[in-house]
Design a protein around this nucleic acid. Structure first.
Length: 817
RNA sequence: GCCGAGAUGGCGGAAUGGCAGACGCACUUGACUCAAAAUCAAGCGUCCUCUGGAUGUGAGGGUUCGAGUCCCUCUCUCGGCACCA
């Protein structure tokens, strides 16, 4: 008999026991039944685990535990996304080196994760800031470079003139620096890119084969922004060059009354004719100075200037004006558009403001309102030979016509997706393994020279250059090819590069010869279930898919998608319903609750109190209730244990009822847990607890062996959701093995059929009475009983029964009149 | 503006087109107690002429024997994208 109630001491006792016995070590042998369950690894920020970690790791752990008990060989590793800006910013503020603070944070978090009682296999831990890991991040860079997927070009970076440093997009909030709030400007630097655009179509096609939330796939689809249309070429009046535009509305070509170039368009210089040179230059300058804030303002009135020159309309030969305007983006399509003010709202605004001609070339179908600007599809008019065609037909016909005439049009596809800028002018990241030699040019560091170690003693206070550039011993290096003096690349890699392949390293994390053993990883991957926040829908999740596709093409893996199934957990809010944040003072720290109630109470509360996919506001009342439930479980099981030596093998009404609840719980939990319906799993455990209690109170005699059977199955069902408590209860039932090695209970369909069932009786769809029938009663018997039901009879006078609908096991509906 | 998700008691939340509100919190009543807590038993959407009846899942229509669930229109909330040609 146990005297001590469940509490933190129970957690400690079993955590030590599990560790000693290594019960969560991944079994490499049983690979046929492997199940790779992964949570997005965390950034070792503050020292302590917060509710969000518990919510993601603890609850997915319960899910993984069910898989284990169902006989899967679950691979459930854990690691740390340890490079990144917060540590560096913290260092700038406090002087504590990022490596020191990060490693200290990791040590604390690791310990705290252990107190969760998770099934993590720490033998496979990965820490991205260690040379043994980033060596292979650098290898990945070199492989991409060798295959033409990493390249250099000049690109603007966000620049904070006050901090004197470049900023990542994440550090720019509403056009201002997140640290000092100064207005962020742009600066051009030559930087490294990964050619993710080469995989745009593959990334779209891959969505078909993965079990992800539709919402997330839709976000990626929008992000990639595939758009099919045509490129149309406009000859210039005075120059040999031509202007190419991209359009999805070639059907409106005859409505094009002017052209607009982006102010940054390379042809602007060639096109400008006096006396417009000065105003064009001014406008370009003005655009450049424009801050992010202004650019983001969509309500802003459109502006632009005339360049002084003209192009010829490729279909009509008409002379049309060329303007520049900042509503045309240099980075999308060709950086130039054909303006069709009659059928495009933006062009319409612009044309109206600057008095440019507006003509109709599309009419609405079946008399809908087609006042200009009319942007929907319709019937083409005013377009010579193409009149009368639908927009859909004209889009094809016009392009084909121009193409065959003089090649001035062809079908094109463009994407919104940009190549991935991976250079960071920062210290705390993996150095880019490239050397610049005056003679040999850009020279990749030979793979045998990896890792390029990140030096410890570096002045990383921001002063406008990459911190590594200030370390002479880092920068100066002999060229690997000609051995003359050369210089290292001083930028580091975006931390999203680290996290885009970490799941590939887990299975083979100690391999010093290669990033992974190909055969082994092909057996363990892809990840079967990936759980993490929806905020990563486009960045991390898209990058990881891209990297895996590239690695597949390079022959390093044989699968094309890293994450077969994906689930986004919701967010736990503060008690005030707001997002938890230090400034709002609504942060809930798990530690105090765990000290007081134990880890399982905390876990059970999270499991029970919310819908996992939605989250919700924290409640102290809820956790008190959960602590009471745990006490109730202990009481009920203690009472049950006292009954276990009662003789008796009869399955009377009370036994059958309890058995019914048991099997309904087994069935329900097995179903619900599959799609993370944890709250209903716990509610079914509660129902079973209540049923056990009722049996104890009400059954005239107790069937000892049956009570043991029910109790043991209850503890098995409880095990994934309250691992320490269940282990303790299991031991108290006289077992010396771990409950976590037990098989998941199977429901007996026969037990789910009760002998007599209650049916609702409706008259014209409204509930009037209830009848009790044998569960195997046939329809005629049920109908007869229903028509005789006491409260139904008054409705049957002076009318006829039109039909009777019987829904087996549920209700009868008598339709009258 | 576009795309996506959602709206159910005082609260968290359940409901393969079939008895709305499972399970729990809070609350009310009773038992135990000198008393309180805990525990145990019971009640608990709203309204009414209250052993009964009406009504009820953001609003309004529709399909159906039957709608929280399906269809149409609208309101609001949240998330994402945002001059993408």
């Amino acid at each position: 008999m146990r005297t001590l109630k469940y509490g933190k001491h129970t957690d400690t006792k079993w955590q030590e026991n599990w560790e000693r016995n290594g019960i969560y070590k991944f079994n490499r042998e049983n690979i046929e039944k492997k199940f790779y369950c992964l949570e997005m690894f965390s950034y070792p920020s503050g020292a302590k685990l917060h509710v969000g970690h518990w919510w993601n790791f603890g609850l997915t752990d319960s899910w993984a535990r069910v898989k284990r008990m169902q006989g899967h060989s679950v691979f459930h590793p854990m690691g740390f996304d340890a490079f990144g800006l917060p540590a560096e910013n913290y260092a700038i503020k406090t002087g504590i080196h990022p490596e020191d603070s990060t490693m200290a944070n990791i040590a604390t978090m690791r310990e705290q994760l252990r107190t969760m009682g998770g099934t993590f296999d720490w033998d496979h831990e990965v820490v991205t800031c260690l040379p043994s890991y980033y060596r292979w991040t650098q290898w990945l860079f070199l492989e991409l470079h060798e295959h033409g997927l990493a390249y250099r070009k000049e690109a603007p970076v966000n620049w904070c003139p006050s901090c004197n440093t470049s900023l990542a997009n994440e550090q720019v909030e509403h056009g201002a620096c997140e640290r000092c709030n100064a207005e962020v400007t742009k600066r051009n630097l030559t930087q490294w890119f990964f050619k993710i655009t080469a995989y745009a179509d593959d990334l779209l096609a891959g969505h078909e084969e993965i079990n992800w939330p539709e919402k997330t796939k839709a976000m990626q689809k929008n992000w990639i922004g595939k758009s099919t249309g045509a490129t149309i070429i406009f000859p210039l009046e005075h120059q040999a060059e031509t202007i190419e535009v991209f359009t999805t509305r070639a059907d409106t070509l005859f409505g094009c009354t002017y052209l607009v170039l982006a102010p940054e368009h390379p042809l602007v210089k060639a096109v400008v004719r006096e006396p417009f040179g000065e105003q064009v230059a001014d406008y370009q300058e003005q655009t450049k100075r424009q801050s992010e804030i202004d650019r983001l303002a969509t309500t802003k009135e459109k502006t632009g200037v005339f360049t002084g020159s003209y192009a010829y309309h490729p279909a009509t030969g008409e002379r049309i004006a060329i303007w520049i305007a900042d509503y045309v983006l240099a980075t999308y399509g060709t950086g130039a558009v054909m303006a069709v003010p009659g059928h495009d709202a933006r062009d319409y605004d612009f044309a109206a403001k600057y008095h440019l001609p507006i003509v109709r070339v599309v009419q609405g179908k079946d008399g809908c309102d087609d006042s200009l600007p009319f942007v929907a599809d319709g019937i083409v008019v005013g377009s010579s030979a193409f009149d009368g065609l639908t927009s859909e037909q004209a889009r094809i016909a016009i392009v084909e016509h121009l193409h065959s005439q003089n090649g001035h049009a062809h079908f094109t596809t463009t994407y919104r997706l940009r190549d991935w800028l991976v250079s960071r002018q920062r210290y705390w990241g993996a150095p880019i393994p490239i050397i610049y030699c005056d003679d040999c040019g850009v020279v990749p560091v030979p793979a045998s020279d990896l890792p390029v170690l990140l030096p410890y003693n570096v002045d990383f206070t921001p002063d406008g250059q990459s911190p590594l550039a200030k370390s002479a011993e880092f920068v100066n290096v002999p060229c690997p090819k000609c051995h003359k003096r050369a210089k290292r690349e001083t930028d580091t890699l975006d931390t999203f590069v680290d996290s885009s392949w970490y799941f590939l390293r887990y299975p083979d994390n100690k391999n010093n010869d290669q990033p992974w053993d190909i055969d082994w990883i092909n057996k363990l991957l892809p990840v079967d279930m990936y759980v993490g926040g929806p905020e990563h829908a486009v960045m991390h999740l898209l990058y990881a898919r891209f990297i895996v596709k590239a690695l597949k093409d390079m022959g390093y893996v044989n699968f094309g998608e890293p994450f077969k199934a994906l689930v986004h957990q919701g967010i736990i809010l503060g008690a005030d319903g707001e997002k938890m944040s230090k400034s709002k003072g609504n942060v809930v720290s798990p530690d105090a609750y765990i000290d007081k109630h134990g880890a399982d109470v905390f876990r059970l509360y999270l499991l029970f109190g919310f819908n996992y996919l939605e989250g919700g506001p924290w409640s102290d009342d809820g956790i008190k209730a959960t602590a009471r439930y745990v006490e109730r479980v202990e009481r009920v099981i203690e009472r049950a244990t006292e009954k276990m030596n009662h003789v008796g093998e009869s399955m009377g009404g009370a036994e059958q009822e309890l058995n019914y609840v048991l099997h309904r719980a087994i069935y329900g939990i097995t179903q619900d847990v599959l799609d993370f319906g944890f709250n209903t799993c716990v509610s079914k455990l509660m129902e079973l607890t209540n049923a056990l209690h009722r049996y104890d109170m009400e059954a005239p005699t107790k069937n000892g062996p049956f009570v043991r059977h029910v109790t043991e199955n209850f503890v098995r069902l409880l095990a994934p959701f309250a691992p320490h408590l269940a282990e303790e209860l299991w031991a108290s039932l006289g077992h010396s093995n771990s409950v976590h090695g037990e098989a998941w209970p199977q429901h007996d369909p026969k037990a789910l059929n009760r002998q007599r069932i209650e049916l609702a009786v409706q008259v014209n769809g409204r509930l009037r009475d209830k009848i009790e029938v044998a569960s195997d009663a046939n329809e005629d018997e049920i109908k007869t009983l229903a028509l005789q039901a006491e409260k139904v009879l008054p409705f049957l006078t002076n009318t006829i029964v039109r039909k009777i609908i019987v829904v087996k096991g549920s209700l009868v509906n008598i339709v009258l009149g």
